[in-house]
């Protein structure tokens, strides 16, 4: 109670400011996504070998990269939580794990849809796909541990540990295509990409897609953190109501 009464006066306006920022971000995201759709379908050239289906690339790759970012934030915030033991760190870790799971799920689904017409199979038990599926399992486990832990306190601690250790799989996923010969293509952009792996216009549209998807990712993450904040305050009030 004392904590609520003693809140600084600026808190309410700060929260309102954050809400406005989320609305603006949503607007910017929507505009970026519309432009991105135009670029992907109207400007990007059709791939000489794969045909139109190669346009999945412009969502599949940014979504995969941002799932990595989600799990990176989760691991860092998990370390922060284990050191500081404050709700704020846990909120960020929890939110980024959930958004990361949404992204890695979509990375898997778009990959499966892309694989069917190209590889002639929906799924292959090969290193890139398998390590990505393991990544999915790790962070789904992260979310479930929070649900099933004996106390919320333990849930926060155990899930932080899983989030930190689980991040080890991210570089394995990234380098799997370099380490093991397989059916999945290697990187076509970034430090590991071969020279000329991507036509310049395709690379430019991919970067634009990455920026647009980053805006969406940030919006979803902020929205999730805000939701956790309100739900936390609600359950705190409920507990105080019960003890009175």
């Amino acid at each position: 109670m004392a904590a609520i009464a003693g809140r600084p006066a600026g808190k309410a306006s700060w929260q309102r400011g954050l809400r406005d920022a989320r609305l603006w971000l949503l607007l910017i995201t929507a505009v970026l996504m519309l432009v991105d759709g135009y670029l992907i379908f109207m400007v990007a050239p059709t791939d000489a070998v794969l045909g139109h289906v190669q346009r999945i690339f412009y969502v599949h790759v940014p979504i995969s990269i941002l799932s990595f970012l989600g799990f990176l934030i989760c691991a860092v915030a998990g370390i922060g939580y284990l050191i500081r033991r404050t709700e704020r760190w846990d909120r960020v870790a929890h939110a980024s794990a959930e958004v990361g799971v949404v992204f890695v799920t979509l990375a898997l689904v778009t990959g499966i849809i892309w694989a069917r017409p190209v590889w002639n199979a929906w799924w292959q038990w090969e290193p890139r796909l398998t390590t990505t599926l393991i990544l999915w399992f790790i962070y789904v486990a992260y979310l479930m541990i929070r649900q099933y832990a004996p106390t919320p306190q333990q849930g926060r601690t155990w899930s932080a540990v899983v989030g930190i250790i689980g991040f080890v799989d991210v570089p394995i996923v990234y380098y799997s295509v370099q380490w093991w010969q397989s059916i999945h293509p290697k990187q076509v952009i970034g430090p590991e990409a071969a020279e000329g792996a991507l036509e310049p216009i395709m690379a430019q549209i991919l970067v634009f897609s990455l920026v647009a998807t980053l805006a969406l990712f940030t919006y979803l993450l902020l929205e999730r953190v805000a939701l956790r904040g309100i739900e936390d305050r609600l359950s705190q009030l409920r507990r105080e109501g019960n003890t009175d």
Partner: peptide, 13 residues
Amino acid sequence: LVKCPSKYQSLQA
């Protein structure tokens, strides 16, 4: 199964 090169380019290029 079909494996494609890790390379994308347009028909023109």
